[in-house]
Write a protein that binds this DNA or RNA. Structure first.
Lengths: 203, 203
DNA sequence: GTCTATAGAAAGATAGAC
DNA sequence: GTCTATCTTTCTATAGAC
C-alpha cells in the first residue's frame, strides 16, 4: 500500500483548478490521506488537526467540519484500513519464510514509517485511539490469521504472531534499538521466519 | 516489585509529622515513586505533572523544583529502573519455560500495569520519552540478554526476544485484544516458552 | 466550500510569598 | 521546603464571514 498521491482520485472536472479546489469529495480524500500518513508517522496524540489540514491544503476548521472530530477522523483512517489477508500464503510450508521476509523488508518499503503497523503501534498508548484499535485488530488481523491457522489454540497462536510482529515493530521503528538498526535483512527475515513457524507448528 | 508505600523510608525523625512533611529526601522519593506508577499506567504523554504531584502529596511546582522538568523526572524513573538480569536462568535448557511462565503471569502479578514493560510500551510513542528509552533498553535489556545468549547473532537474537515480549505486552495490556484477554496462563506460558527457545536455539 | 478569528481547556514551567 | 498564582503555549472545536 504505497502512499497515495495528494492529487484527488477522479472528481468531476467541472470547475477550473483555482486556489480553492472547491471539490468536497476530493478535499475529503486529501484530508483522509494526509491523516493516515501523519497518524502512522507520529501516532494519534502527536499530530494535530492543524498539521493534517495543512498537509491536505486546507485549514483545521474544514477537517472538523468534514469529520466532526479528530477521533472520528482517526476512526475513518482505521476503517479505510489494513488487512493481513493478502499476506497469507496458500502454502502452509512457506508461511514463516514469506511473512518473515515481508516484515524484515518493511522499513525499506515504507521508510517513513507510514505502514499500518506504525499506525497501530504509535497510537496504541492513546486511550482514545486504543479503543478504536482493539476492534480493528481483532477483526482484520487476529481473526483472519486464526482462521488461516485453524485447529486448537488458533486464536492464541494468531495473537502471538501478531504480537511478535508488533513487538518487532516497536523495537525496530519506535525505540530504534541499536541491535536492529543496521541488521542484515536476510538474516532477520530468516530468523523471524523460524520463529513464526514455531508458533504455527508447535503441537 | 510492589509499589512502595508513600511513607518515607527512613528519614531522620527530628521533626513532627505536621501537615507539611518538610523532608526533602522523603518527598523526592515519594514523587519518584508516584511518577513511576503513573508513567507505567498511562505513558509519558498521558500523565501530567500535576497528577503525579497530587499522588505524592505535593504540588506541581515542587516536582519541577526537584527534577527540573517532566522529562528529567522520566529519566530518573528509568534510571531507577529495570533490568532483565534476574530473569536469566543459570540453566540454558529452562530458558523458555522460565521466562515464558514469568511473562505469562505478569498481569496477575501487577494487575494495574505498573511493571517496567508497561512503562516502556506506553511511552515508546513519545518523541521525548522514546529518546531516553532507547539507551536504557540497549543497556539493560538487550545487552545483558545478548551476553547471556552468546555466539553468532547474539544481539539480533536478544533483540528478537525483547521484541517478542514487548509485542505480547502491546497486544495483551495495551490493545487488550480479545484472543489474549481470558487466555489460559499455562497454555500461553508454554507456547511462549517454545517460541523463545526457538529464537535462542536456531542454528 | 472554505476561511478567519476565537473560545475554552489543559499542560509545562516559573516567580515569589510564607 | 512548600505553596499560590500566573505566564505561555498548544490544542480541539466552533461561530460566523465570504
Amino acid at each position: 500500500m504505497p502512499p497515495r498521491s495528494r492529487t484527488p482520485a477522479a472528481p468531476r472536472a467541472t470547475r477550473p483548478a483555482t486556489a480553492h479546489r472547491r471539490d468536497a469529495a476530493a478535499t475529503r480524500a486529501a484530508i483522509l490521506d494526509a491523516a493516515r500518513r501523519h497518524f502512522a508517522r507520529a501516532g494519534y496524540d502527536h499530530v494535530g488537526v492543524r498539521e493534517i489540514a495543512a498537509d491536505a491544503g486546507v485549514t483545521a476548521a474544514l477537517v472538523n467540519r468534514y469529520f466532526g472530530s479528530k477521533e472520528q477522523l482517526f476512526a475513518e483512517v482505521l476503517a479505510s484500513g489494513f488487512d493481513i489477508g493478502p499476506l497469507l500464503p496458500a502454502d502452509r510450508a512457506t508461511f514463516g519464510a514469506v511473512l518473515g521476509r515481508f516484515i524484515a523488508a518493511a522499513p525499506r518499503r515504507t521508510p517513513d514509517d507510514q505502514g499500518p503497523l506504525s499506525l497501530l503501534l504509535r497510537s496504541a498508548a492513546s486511550p482514545t485511539a486504543g479503543k478504536l484499535l482493539r476492534e480493528h485488530i481483532d477483526t482484520h488481523l487476529v481473526g483472519p490469521l486464526a482462521q488461516w491457522i485453524g485447529g486448537d489454540d488458533a486464536e492464541l497462536r494468531a495473537a502471538l504472531i501478531v504480537s511478535t510482529l508488533a513487538g518487532l515493530g516497536v523495537l525496530r521503528r519506535m525505540v530504534k534499538t541499536s541491535a536492529l538498526a543496521g541488521v542484515d535483512e536476510e538474516r532477520l527475515g530468516a530468523l523471524l521466519g523460524e520463529l513464526l513457524d514455531a508458533v504455527v507448528e508447535t503441537p
